[in-house]
Amino acid sequence: MPIQLFFCLLLASSAFAADDSQNVSFDKPVQIPETVLQPGKYSIRLEDRLADRAIVRITGPDHADHYLLTVPSKTLKAAGAGLIFFPDSAGTAALNGWECNGCKRPLEFVYPKDEAVKLTAEMGKPVLAYDPSYDKLPDNLSPADRKVVTLWLLAPKTVSPQGKGEGLTAAKYSAPRTVASTEPLPKTMPKTASLAFLELLAGFLSFVAGTVAFLWRKVSALPKVWKMAGLTMIGGMVAGFALPMASSYQTTQVYVPSTAQIAAQVSPAKADLEVERLKARNRRLEALLAALREKNAE
């Protein structure tokens, strides 16, 4: 297992560098996913990472943190370490990616779907997007939980200029396969039966058998009269215990359904039929009784 963990860490670290923070200064507003940053000095750092995605934190002059979802990109090109903006963005600059010092691949920012649609229309360039409704997130998540799920679980997909707006066609993002282990899967399910209770049972039975054997040997050595007396006593004790138990067993076997059980089993329609059947039986009995009375009177 330590080898697997090392391998996982090696895989995760290969896409990212150790030097993962940078200070930047904006002289005009900059659009990032979910908000627009005002001009000022900001700190960008790699907050967290998995094999297929990274969480980037941007901290502003007011110490407000923005946690953003990014994925390592094969297509983004940076002139050097630093921020990558969408080309030809008029007015507000929109952040497309970030290449941290030593990053093997730039990190591409993932925008909410509505912002991605606007950006792709303006830039004429595919934009990575996430869409909570596409991933069927439950409605009862708090905004904080929704943010966590977005960062860690939502699948980014590409919004392209050809399919913007109505009837948007978004290709599902396919994450690189995460290799979690170098070991193959087990061929059978793990053995999860402990021997503790089997040992306890076997031990108890062996002990009882040993004790019985010991006592039997002792009893065998006794004179016949004592044996008979002992057997009579044991028989009496067994009968004393067994008879009350047997009688209580018999009484518990009588099944008396409760009213609730009857109500649960008998539907109103069935109950009506039963009442009719009983009434018909009553009428037959009354007719029979009347016939007998007449016969007696004669």
């Binding site: 040992e199 031990g203 004790t211």
Partner: peptide, 22 residues
């Protein structure tokens, strides 16, 4: 002899099972 063996084996097994749980 048999009774002693069964008692001893029972006690050992019982101890093993108990030891696991403890």
């Amino acid at each position: 002899m048999l009774s002693k063996f069964l008692c001893a084996a029972g006690l050992i097994l019982f101890s093993l099972g108990s030891a696991q749980l403890v």
